[in-house]
């Protein structure tokens, strides 16, 4: 009897969370129509540069080039920033916020929206963008490693997944936790 009730409560909670995520996505869609007119361009531009830098196999990093640092900076800082920017502030993406009163979460603070769901939905947008970039990055890195060095090694895959998926996801999470 108690188990049945617990199961029912869990089910209700899950449904409630799903409904809240759906509402947040609808809200974001409308928000993006105000804030993201040209915002979609920036992650594309940075991704293009990052994929270009992925043409250099990580094994060649020891020769003194600082390109892995540039890749990490671009993918770890700029890509999550640009992907999340239309959702984090309610002002236009390229409008300089005058104060902290433009943060989207502050507008939702006293509404029935949980911060956990708010972050989870936005991390979803970032992941949806990054997994495709990671696949492309892994492919580029492995192809060029095979061409340059005669073989692709696991380190190429680990490097591409690390800088194109894990680092930006971690940076995005920190951005949302601290400022979003």
């Amino acid at each position: 009897m108690i188990r049945e009730k617990e199961r029912q409560i869990r089910q209700e909670t899950r449904e409630e969370q799903a409904q809240q995520r759906r509402r947040l996505r609808e809200f974001d869609k409308e928000l993006f129509s105000y804030t993201g007119q040209i915002a979609w361009l920036l992650p594309g531009l940075f991704s293009f540069v990052v994929l270009g830098l992925m043409c250099i196999p990580v094994q060649e990093a020891g020769s003194g080039d600082s390109y892995p640092g540039i890749v990490t900076f671009l993918s770890g800082v700029w890509i999550p920033f640009c992907v999340l920017q239309p959702y984090v502030n309610v002002t236009d993406t390229f409008e300089r916020p005058k104060n902290n009163r433009n943060r989207t979460y502050d507008k939702l603070k006293y509404l029935p929206v949980s911060r956990k769901q708010y972050i989870s939905v936005r991390m979803g947008y970032l992941f949806r963008y990054l997994w495709k970039l990671t696949l492309a990055g892994v492919a580029v890195q492995c192809i060029f490693a095979a061409v340059d060095l005669g073989r692709a090694e696991p380190v190429n895959v680990v490097y591409a997944v690390g800088v194109l998926l894990f680092v930006p996801m971690a940076a995005g999470w920190i951005q949302l936790r601290t400022g979003g």
């Binding site: 809240q20 509402r23 809200f27 409308e30 928000l31 507008k107 939702l108 509404l111 029935p112």
Partner: peptide, 9 residues
């Protein structure tokens, strides 16, 4: 109201 009201049941 349209954007934020949707969060209420």
């Amino acid at each position: 109201a349209r954007m934020l009201g949707r969060f209420y049941s």
